[in-house]
Amino acid sequence: MLKYVNTGIVFQEIPDEVTLAINISNCPCHCPGCHSYYLWDDIGLPLDTHAIDAFVDKFGTDITCISFMGGDADPKAVNQLALYIHEEHPEFKVAWYSGKTIISSVINKRDFDYIKIGPFIKHLGPLKNPKTNQRLYRQKDDGTFEDITSRFWRQ
């Protein structure tokens, strides 16, 4: 079962979106230098369709996107929630930040509008560093994904 520890409305995680970031616990990645190491433990409240509905009721039109921050311990459950959002709350985009380098085969990528992959590697930095190993992809209208990581780099 997925559990979340906290949420926040963020403006820089997904370009051009006001995003509700849901921090999911029980992270199996354990990246050295992780700024959210408290998410390594299996703690928090259940993250299910009832929680999603409560977030939608609470934040409504204040957000345009819902992002799952983690969930690599149960990617199938993350995918089920993404599908639920697209079916029951189609006004929202759905994003997923995975610490893995490859998306699990149980994931239907078309259920996500954005997918970020890659563990945090301190000397390569986060998305805003052009040397980062992490990548953010956006689904295009034809269902393919394009790398939009460079949108985080200052020109």
Score class of each variant (00 low, 15 high):
D57M: 06
A95D: 09
Y38L: 04
K76R: 15
P130Q: 08
D41F: 14
F11W: 14
T61E: 12
S98N: 08
T7G: 07
H50Q: 13
V56M: 02
S105P: 10
I85C: 02
I117G: 01
L45Y: 11
D113G: 03
I117H: 04
D57E: 12
C31V: 06
R135A: 03
A73V: 06
K122L: 15
K116D: 01
S25Y: 01
K140I: 04
P130N: 08
T49R: 08
L20F: 10
I14M: 01
L127W: 05
L81A: 01
H35F: 09
L136S: 01
H50C: 00
N129A: 10
I102N: 02
F59V: 05
Q80F: 04
N23S: 12
R110F: 00
R135F: 05
P28F: 03
T149C: 09
L47A: 03
M1E: 13
K109W: 00
L83K: 14
K76H: 12
K76T: 06
D72K: 11
N129W: 06
D48E: 07
P130I: 01
D72R: 10
K128N: 14
L127G: 02
N108S: 06
Q80V: 00
Y84G: 02
G118I: 03
H30D: 05
K140E: 13
Y37K: 13
E88G: 00
G70K: 06
F59L: 07
P46D: 14
V56I: 13
P130Y: 07
R154V: 04
S25T: 09
G71R: 06
S67M: 15
V10W: 10
F55D: 04
A82R: 03
I117T: 15
L2S: 03
H123V: 14
K109R: 15
N26V: 02
K76W: 04
P32V: 08
S67H: 02
I85F: 09
N23P: 00
L47Q: 00
V18W: 01
F59H: 15
R135N: 02
L45H: 07
A54Q: 13
I43Q: 12
L47P: 04
L47F: 10
T144Y: 04
T132S: 14
G99C: 06
C34N: 08
I63H: 02
S104M: 02
K109D: 05
W96R: 05
N26P: 03
E146C: 05
T19R: 03
E17W: 05
A73S: 14
A77T: 11
F11P: 02
I9W: 09
V94R: 09
A21E: 09
G60K: 13
S67W: 01
R154F: 03
F120E: 01
E87S: 12
I121R: 13
N108L: 08
F120Q: 00
I117Q: 06
Y37L: 07
T49Y: 03
I43N: 10
H123E: 15
L2R: 11
Y37R: 13
I63S: 03
N133R: 12
Q80S: 12
T7Y: 10
L81K: 08
G44I: 10
